[in-house]
């Protein structure tokens, strides 16, 4: 059976990934999250390559939550790939990172990120922010159909 994920979470840090999934689950979207652990995996998923060979790539997610600092392929590189390809350009990408560095923020906007969210430090704030983020991109925002 093929997964039609609504949210793709690209996060190499297991404890952050856990927190994010738990916060999103409060909006009852547990079964629609696909967690990928590095930049290469998400590229393979989106373009139907590697272990995702043969996937129907027209099943695009409603949003991709993308960490920046990851092994193999960085978040910036992934963002560049997504936003420079007409097939994937329309997928909303939210960078969700602990980096508050302005050069990172600017670079992401320059590459066409839809939104940039800094992970709040406290557990409560983190959880609230992620819940709001999930609500916005799943229920309020309208993504293109392919």
């Amino acid at each position: 059976m093929e997964i039609a994920a609504e949210i793709i979470l690209v996060e190499d840090n297991p404890s952050d990934a856990d927190l994010i999934k738990r916060a999103l689950n409060k909006n009852n979207v547990a079964n629609k999250i696909l967690h990928l652990k590095d930049g290469q995996e998400v590229i393979d998923y989106l373009f139907g390559e590697g272990q995702w060979k043969g996937r129907t790539t027209t099943n695009t997610p409603k949003v991709i939550l993308l960490d920046l600092k990851m092994p193999k392929v960085s978040g910036i590189e992934v963002l560049k790939r997504i936003k420079s390809n007409p097939e994937t350009k329309g997928i909303p990408v939210v960078v969700l990172t602990s980096s508050k560095e302005d050069p990172d923020i600017k670079e992401c906007y320059k590459l066409g990120v839809n939104s940039y969210v800094v992970k709040p430090v406290g557990f409560e704030d983190f959880s609230r922010t992620v819940a709001q983020l999930g609500l916005y991109w799943l229920l309020i925002n309208q993504q293109p159909k392919w």
Binding site: K100, S115, V117, Y136, I140, Q143
Partner: peptide
């Protein structure tokens, strides 16, 4: 982001609130 205006008045108001909250408080420019 692209948001379709809900026809229902109350939904419209809630949507506007969520949009403003997200972009002014959650998003980092």
């Amino acid at each position: 982001s692209y948001v379709v205006k809900p026809i229902d008045f109350e939904k419209f108001a809630l949507t506007i609130k969520d949009i403003a909250y997200y972009w002014l408080k959650v998003n980092q420019p």
